[in-house]
Amino acid sequence: MSTYSVSDTTAPAAPRAALTFSNLSGRYGVGLAASLVWLAFGLSCLYWPDLGDWSRTGSLGIGAIVIAAFILFGTFSADYLGSAGQALRKRAPWLLAFGAFVTLWEVATAKFAWLPLPFFPPPQSILEVYTDDLPKLLDSVFASIKLQLGGYIIGATVGFITGVSIGWSQKIGYWVHPVLRFIGPLPATAWLPIAFFTFPSSWSASTFLIALATGFPVTVLTWSGVASVSSAYYDVARTLGAKPSFLVLKVAIPAALPHVFVGLFMGLGSSFAVLVVAEMIGVKAGLGWYLQWAQGWAAYANMYAALIVMSLLCSGAITLLFRTRDRLLVWQKGVVKW
């Protein structure tokens, strides 16, 4: 599906700037500063002795200096690197801020212990988790993804079908609506104790709860989406010879799709919460369980490492959902960019 407007003519390349003092403070200034901050981070790792016993301090310091070199190279050759160069230039302020943050973090923990130590582990100890505890962490990631994906797909499918049914048929709505009102608003986590002894396994119980948490918002929003489709669309389709199945599949559902995606987004958020709680309480795998386990051993670095991974996964899932929406709803004007 391409739109008719063709605007893929590239903007004319910016004139290559000579290396002058004014350029150093303007065009290249931020990139240069970012590079210096990362260099400072690397040197701070290597210069002061560690207050604790961490094995990755040296690697981290060298890594930081390598990053600094890359930023430096990228900044001055951005004009020759095409889109990668442009992306780097755009993100230079963030690289600067992030470099400053990790430098401060390094100095405040590993070097001078301004922050109480076991609770605030330095960057190198988190790096250590990623290198030394990787198999266990990866197992947890896969377990979480499997559980989440299964429950989410079941919940979204059931919710979508239920929503379309009650939006379309008053008879189905009569029976389903009260049940939905009674069960839906209950937080899915409240079912945890019951679910864990009524279901044959903790895995099936968690899948059910994730599906429940996903299903409710998807049902309600699909339903309201279908119910709010303008009757003019049905009139048009009917005069053109549409049968009821066409009205549902080709009119009601596409018209309701923007609502459905809001429901899918809300369902994703609440299902993450259920996933983590279910893994902490019942399932003996996954990132929630990893967090719990790390807490039991007072392995704070592992907790932070798992939190970072979890955040990346959740954010990635939402990005994926929004990309799908943008593809399916290209016909909409001004959809929110994630």
Binding site: S230, A232, V236, T239, G241, P254, A255, L329, W331, Q332
Partner: peptide, 17 residues
Amino acid sequence: PHPSRVVVFQDPTLFPW
């Protein structure tokens, strides 16, 4: 309704999708 009698309404009511 039958496609031999087609209506054009005041609003174009095109399907935006």
